[in-house]
């Protein structure tokens, strides 16, 4: 057992951080915010902690606290700046933000160590500490998937105009989701820096965003367990058992992702639904059918019937 753990610890750590990062994207998406900015705040968290601990000699706890507060302030400001962007435009702007963070990490030598990065970051958190952080985050996400908050989130991502007409302050909710997403990204960065003890610009950028998204979508975008499942599958199983074929890893990951996207719209988490359809149907409420929302950008009167995952045998009279 102990042998097994030490042999797999690196993969487990990778899975934990990947799950945190995937969860950070998820909490934005589930409120209807197509933002990847949390991957940029992953860099802020990692470099912030690295700088305060390794360079300035702070303890990990005060450093992490300050970094999370800085993340909240910065992400709130960014949310104000990006407030009017929607959908693919927001996605694009936040991808640019992620890349700017990477460029900033390369250029701001005095804090980030430039291309060489930061090293000697104290390994204060450990696998257990990061697992605790992840457990806490997943617990919050699981609780807010149900009840009034869960209903509000579903409403927000399905129909913004309706949400506002039912008393939801859409902009405010989007900002909260954006900041919460940034905080989770920052926590993932803090965890990664503490686990690796080094952090370089190589650990940032587009490919990190891609891994987080892939893990999320394969795991299950709309269920709280999706990030965990995706993180375990990609950063643990595939890394551990695909090592011999690492040359083909890109092909395996890509193909697996496409297959899941096409055949399992709810990701691997959706498989549980087969075991327990009643509970998850309400909780996850992801897509299972309907002819694609190509015209749903304008949720007008004609959208009836487009957004409804009805099992065929239940199809009664509809519009």
């Amino acid at each position: 057992m102990i042998d097994w753990f030490s042999g797999n610890e690196g993969y487990i750590q990778g899975a934990l951080v990947a799950a945190l990062l995937a969860a950070s994207v998820q909490v934005a998406l589930r409120a209807g915010v197509l933002s990847f900015a949390s991957v940029g705040f992953y860099g802020v968290g990692a470099y912030g902690t690295g700088y305060l601990t390794a360079t300035q000699g702070w303890g990990t706890a005060p450093a992490a606290t300050v970094v999370v507060i800085i993340t909240m302030v910065l992400s709130w400001l960014l949310a104000l700046v990006l407030a009017r962007l929607r959908a693919l435009y927001l996605a694009m702007a936040t991808i640019a933000f992620v890349l700017l963070v990477q460029i900033g990490a390369l250029a701001w030598d005095s804090v980030t160590g430039g291309p060489l990065g930061l090293f000697g970051i104290p390994p204060a958190l450990g696998t257990g500490g990061v697992a605790l952080i992840l457990a806490g985050v997943l617990a919050v996400n699981a609780l807010t998937q149900r009840g009034a908050v869960g209903r509000r989130l579903l409403l927000l991502r399905k129909d913004e105009a309706l949400a506002s007409a039912l008393g939801v302050n859409v902009r405010h909710q989007h900002q909260i989701a954006f900041v919460w997403s940034a905080v989770l990204g920052s926590l993932a960065g803090i965890s990664q820096a503490s686990l690796l003890t080094v952090f370089t610009p190589e650990n940032l950028g587009f490919s990190v965003m891609v891994s987080a998204l892939t893990a999320l979508v394969v795991g299950g975008t709309w269920h709280w367990s999706g990030p965990l499942i995706g993180g375990v599958v990609f950063s643990w199983f595939l890394s551990a058992y695909l090592g011999f074929a690492s040359d083909y890893r890109g092909v395996v990951e890509g193909a697996l992702t496409v297959v899941v996207l096409v055949f399992l719209p709810k990701g691997l988490a959706g498989l549980f639904e087969l075991l327990d359809p009643g509970r998850l149907r309400r909780a996850a409420a992801g897509p299972t059918g309907g002819p694609g929302g190509v015209s749903a950008g304008v949720p007008g009167g004609a959208s009836t019937g487009q957004d409804r995952p009805v099992p065929a045998q239940e199809m009664g009279v509809s519009s």
Binding site: T214, V217, T221, G254, G292, G293, Q306
Partner: peptide, 21 residues
């Protein structure tokens, strides 16, 4: 198979990343 526009946009975006990979 997407439930709505947001879902379709996000999932095709990720599919494109996967195909690129």
């Amino acid at each position: 198979r997407s439930a709505n526009a947001l879902d379709a946009e996000m999932r095709t975006l990720i599919a494109s990343v996967a195909v690129a990979s």
